[in-house]
């Protein structure tokens, strides 16, 4: 029993070490040649442009439902005019970054794990290495840059669409004046909210790509293994995103907020 627990801990620590090494190697590879800019642009296209639809829809409906839900509570205090503030701050600080990251993890992180996992089981990664190309440099680093750059962009988009979604409901269902909504929404945003709203997606972008690539590259057990890596990449990334979000909140509220 103790042995099994010991082995489990040992395995987890080894995985953590391998995960950290993969991240470190990917970043370190950016400081020397060759660099794969074409692959990086392709990944940016795949992560960014490819995720536009789901991110827009997620943002839109989140903003809309936030307005519907919060208006009932705000009405109890006669504070319906604050609904814009409620939507903008919730989207910017919390829901925009987290929901975008979760959606992108489901779409992109799983795709990376599946693609790299298939490459492992069909020996394409070995072939790459035998042809003198470092798979981390060619496959992981471009995805890492693309993830870290594109997730903040997607999050900003999601926030904006969310606020518009909130506005549509506020304007046409709650009959709130346009200027009242936007005034409240935009005035509430302070620089530290923007900082929080942009730092989080940077970290989440890294988590999604690093987990997806790590799960893919450590795939064993043929096509069944590819399926497991794909599922695992979404589960691990989602849990990491939600837990990191909590700790980031603690840190930012303590050190950045006045």
């Amino acid at each position: 029993m103790l042995d099994a627990a010991g082995n489990w801990v040992k395995e987890r620590l080894a995985a953590l070490q391998a995960f950290s090494k993969l991240s470190f190697d990917a970043f370190a590879s950016l400081f020397s040649k060759p660099r794969y800019w074409r692959e990086t642009l392709e990944q940016m296209d795949s992560i960014g442009v490819g995720s536009l639809t789901i991110v827009t829809l997620t943002g839109l409906f989140t903003g809309m439902v936030l307005t519907v839900q919060s208006s009932a509570t705000l009405d109890a205090f006669g504070a319906r005019s604050y609904v814009g503030r409620m939507v903008s701050l919730s989207m910017l600080r919390e829901l925009g970054p987290v929901l975008t990251a979760l959606m992108v993890s489901g779409r992109v992180g799983s795709g990376m794990a599946a693609e790299l996992g298939s490459m492992v089981v069909t020996q394409q990664i070995d072939a790459l290495r035998s042809l003198g190309t470092d798979p981390i440099r060619k496959l992981v680093a471009p995805r890492m840059i693309a993830g870290i750059v594109m997730l903040p962009v997607l999050t900003v988009l999601s926030n904006a669409v969310g606020m518009v979604g909130g506005f549509l409901v506020a304007r046409f269902t709650l009959r709130l004046a346009t200027s009242l909504y936007w005034h409240s929404a935009l005035d509430a945003i302070k620089p530290h909210d923007l900082f929080m709203g942009l730092l989080k997606p940077l970290v989440f972008g890294y988590i999604i790509v690093a987990v997806g690539c790590y799960q893919g590259l450590t795939t064993t057990g043929g096509t069944r293994g590819v399926g497991e890596s794909t599922t695992q990449s979404v589960v691990v990334a989602s849990v990491l995103i939600l837990s990191t979000d909590y700790f980031l909140n603690l840190l930012i509220l303590k050190f950045v907020y006045p």
Binding site: Q123, L128, G132
Partner: peptide, 14 residues
């Protein structure tokens, strides 16, 4: 590795 070529099982083409 520059001095070695390898033909993998099933080809392992990209």
């Amino acid at each position: 590795r520059a001095g070695i070529g390898m033909v993998f099982q099933e080809g392992a083409l990209f």
